Amino acid sequence: MKSFLTIAALALATLATGAHAADAACEAKALDKNGKALAGAAKNSFMKKCEAESQASGAGAACEAKALDKNGKALAGAAKTSFVKKCMAEAK
């Protein structure tokens, strides 16, 4: 039982670290056209958009990795595009 709790705690810590890393990356990008840090509503809006995009890109990479045919070969062209589009829609 103790090992299960340890594994669960490590999994939660990993997820929290990944979310924090995305926040830090977005925070670093939150600059106006003159290079000054955004503040207030502009920063909140930027952070929300940036975090949503980072989650979507993570899901996109996972969907592309799953894009295999019945023989285990990577899909290509329209089949891959269709599969990734469907997978992304299901991920939301």
Rank of each mutant, 00 (worst) to 15 (best):
I7D: 09
E27L: 14
A74T: 02
C87S: 01
A19H: 02
S45A: 15
K48P: 13
D23R: 14
D32C: 10
G58Q: 08
C26T: 02
S45F: 03
A79N: 00
S45G: 14
D23V: 15
K2R: 15
D32E: 05
F46V: 07
K29Y: 00
A42E: 11
K92H: 13
A30V: 14
M1N: 07
L31E: 11
A74N: 02
A11N: 08
E64W: 03
T17L: 06
T81N: 15
K80G: 00
A89D: 15
L68T: 06
L68R: 05
G58H: 04
K66D: 07
L15P: 03
K66C: 01
A42Y: 08
Q55C: 03
A21F: 15
M1I: 12
N34V: 04
G35A: 09
A61E: 04
A25S: 08
N34Q: 09
A74K: 15
K29S: 06
G60D: 10
A61D: 00
L5A: 01
A52K: 13
A52P: 01
A42V: 11
A67G: 01
K80T: 04
N44F: 06
A74P: 05
A13N: 03
D69K: 01
T81D: 10
A30Y: 11
K70G: 06
A67V: 05
K49Y: 07
S3R: 14
F83G: 00
G72N: 07
K92G: 04
A76Q: 07
L12C: 08
A11V: 15
A9C: 04
A79K: 10
S54V: 11
G40P: 02
G58I: 09
A19R: 06
A91K: 06
